[in-house]
């Protein structure tokens, strides 16, 4: 299987601290891949390097074989590398409908169009309907984003990324903080994401990791500690020692 997203000896240093240490990693096409690691393992730094928010000290990142190490974050999004956030990053002053309208318009390259009223093109509205239905947001499209139930906000968080038509989707703790009652809907939606979207899941919740992922990468102290199938990782005594044993409560 060919890799869609790859890093090659990726290093990020903050002063004397090495947050990402020579990580060589590959995400395969259509992957359901989890990235785990104890707190402070450098997962967030790694994501920020992938999305271009941080510049690596050395090493390379490629998407579909193209070097994107020096590509701007927003351009990476347009190339199909999109992330969600652990803490909701929504547009508080807009309705979900408007937010999806922005995302879809932008994705279709209409973002700088100032002459047309938003949502007058059927290609835009059709795509909004599709995303809103997939993420079960149809009934709350015109509510204030801040008034949505937390589970719905979480769905919107992922829907906004999905509206960018990602080829690679980085899900950062998608279920974090979602109350039990709303959890099933969220997990079901995540499980039903299309197969052609390659997904990297950054997660603490081992139940979710084991139910969702086919492959797992473990990051410890910025270094790629272990990499393998779910079975391999869960039986790896070293991983159990550094992570799984202490991670069970988190």
């Amino acid at each position: 299987m060919s890799a869609v997203l790859e890093t090659n000896a990726l290093v990020k240093k903050f002063g004397g601290i090495t947050a990402t240490n020579a990580v060589t990693f590959a995400l395969e096409k259509g992957a359901r891949h989890a990235l785990i690691g104890p707190n402070g393992a450098g997962k967030t730094t790694f994501i920020n390097l992938l999305t271009g928010v941080l510049e690596p000290t050395s090493g390379r990142i490629s998407l579909d074989g193209k070097d994107i190490t020096n590509v701007k974050p927003e351009a990476r999004v347009k190339m199909g590398l999109v992330r969600t956030f652990q803490i909701n990053q929504l547009f508080a002053g807009m309705t979900p409908l408007q937010a999806l309208g922005v995302a879809v318009s932008e994705r279709q390259g209409r973002g700088s169009d100032w002459r047309r009223v938003v949502g007058t093109k059927a290609t835009v509205t059709d795509e909004i309907v599709e995303v809103a239905e997939r993420f079960r947001l149809i009934d709350v499209l015109e509510e204030r984003t801040g008034n949505l139930a937390y589970g719905k906000q979480r769905l919107l968080e992922i829907a906004l990324a999905f509206a960018c038509k990602p080829r690679v989707l980085l899900l950062d703790e998608p279920a974090a903080g979602v109350p039990e009652a709303e959890r099933a809907e969220l997990l079901e939606t995540i499980a039903r994401l299309p197969d052609d979207v390659s997904i990297l899941l950054i997660e603490h919740d081992m139940d979710l990791v084991f139910s969702f992922a086919k492959k797992i990468t473990v990051l410890v102290d910025g270094t790629l500690f272990a990499d393998g199938t779910v079975a391999e990782i869960s039986n790896d005594p070293r991983v159990r020692a550094v992570y799984l044993g202490e991670g069970e409560h988190g």
Binding site: V77, K78, Q89, L90, A92, M94, V102, R107, L160
Partner: peptide, 18 residues
């Protein structure tokens, strides 16, 4: 509308390709 998105959350605006 993309301006409103930037006003509300520049971090996310960038993350959806604006």
């Amino acid at each position: 509308l993309s301006l409103l998105a930037i006003r509300d959350n520049p971090l996310r605006a960038r993350a959806i390709g604006i």
